[in-house]
Design a protein around this nucleic acid. Structure first.
Lengths: 242, 242
DNA sequence: TCAATAGTGTCTCTTAGACACTATCGT
DNA sequence: ACGATAGTGTCTAAGAGACACTATTGA
């Protein structure tokens, strides 16, 4: 790949390029998203608004889009290697008042126990906000409400047929804990027996041998057999097979 | 949305932003992708190589990323409203020798009958190339081989559980024709009876009343009930339910 | 009447949902 | 022994694959 400088016909006016993160976790039986406050200088767009964490690609620092997302996630949460997936790119002339911009939305799933929230250089505060349906209880900057909705759609769609919720728990976890996470995200009860048969059929978890003592009958602890990728189930969880 | 100019802290060095298209069709019992030849000036990267059609976002012309993709598709093929879906964004420091660049890959499905190929301003020739497995029979410019593989993965994955192949046919079409398209893309035979039961269960096609005369028994003609979105099937086509 | 393709009926197998049942803990 | 939670077994229903069967055309 030879580097041939050809300044001719490269566009001189280029869009702004950003990465935004929908960092989701389950705390207190609810799905939460991590939000940061935008700086309050009036020269900034949406001063003081809540927003998804994110920022511009640093051409000198970031080697790839994914690197950039990973860097921002680590800056905000200290979490190094979570589940991280690109959801979509959204670009238009008017989504940012500062000019034509494209953002690259990533979905991150992390166990809430792991997190140490850090107020980044560019964000006064970072806080977990509970999800209500498709939204959060505060208005968001830019088009971040629709970006959040995109990320939630993706999560809910994939949860119907993948093992994604396992990435919302610290290992090892029990099957009742995992089932509970499915129920929180899907916002509907899941049948215990069918749930377990499904999991075992995919053979993606293995018993550690230990069990969690809770005062009642202890539950067996499991860990993931493959830590990087989710497992795909042959059918969805939909009740009555619809 | 007030427009507040704030030149401070906007990045001065910005990535190149492009859109690339994997335009697929079925011709002569094979899946084909539309490729264009890159200009031959030696100052250009990959002069004379085959590439996916695409180009830079025009900040002054394109309102959104999707608009840009639609414009490029119409320029190359004359097709106005095909099935068009964003597959992924790929960005890194080294995928384009001219600098840090992000491309936005779109998958387009069109009926080959509809197409009038047009050599664009920036492309000496546009040609259909047959797909062999994950690849095409010529080397491609940039990282377009992996982009093509991404688009094919997406198509093949979705075809297992959606009605996407219907967008590769001109309406009205017969069920044997539709089945044949599934078989071409999946590269495996599909069982006739199960195939038809599946389609009818989703209730997304309707008989026109007419039928196609072929010399043997005529086949009933169908049209799509909903032209914009594919239908999702409850299970995949995988043989032996795996 | 025959070849060829379109279209249907029937059987089986797999798997999810429902739900009742058993198992194991602390008190 | 009992309450509570963990975990299993069994029945049923839905849908897919397999495949044989019927239907409709031209020659």
């Amino acid at each position: 790949m030879t580097l041939i400088p050809s300044p001719a016909q490269l566009p001189t006016v280029r869009p702004l390029v950003t990465v935004d993160l929908a960092i989701l976790t389950v705390r207190e039986h609810r799905l939460h998203v991590l939000l940061v406050r935008r700086p309050t200088e009036p020269a900034e767009p949406y001063p003081g608004h809540w927003a998804l964490p994110g920022g511009f690609i640093r051409v000198g620092t970031d080697q790839t889009l994914l690197d950039c997302a990973q860097r921002k996630l680590a800056e905000k949460t200290g979490v190094e290697s979570p589940y991280l997936e690109q959801v979509a790119a959204v670009g238009s002339a008017d989504r940012d008042p500062r000019g034509w911009s494209v953002t690259h939305l990533y979905l991150a799933l992390i166990p809430s126990n792991d997190v140490i929230l850090r107020a980044g250089a560019n964000a006064a505060a970072a806080e977990w906000h509970p999800i209500e349906g498709d939204r959060v209880n505060v208005p968001l900057a830019f088009d971040h409400e629709s970006l959040l909705a995109l990320a939630l759609d993706r999560l809910r769609a994939k949860i119907e047929y993948t093992s994604l919720p396992a990435f919302l728990l610290v290992e090892p976890f029990t099957l009742p804990e995992l089932q509970h996470v499915y129920e929180v995200v899907l916002d509907r009860p899941v049948e215990k027996s069918a749930f377990r048969k499904r999991l075992f059929a995919q053979d993606f978890i293995e018993a550690t041998g230990a069990s969690r003592e809770t005062g009642k009958r202890p539950a067996a602890l499991y860990r993931l057999r493959y830590r990087d990728k989710p497992v795909y189930f042959p059918r969805t969880f939909s009740p009555r097979g619809d």
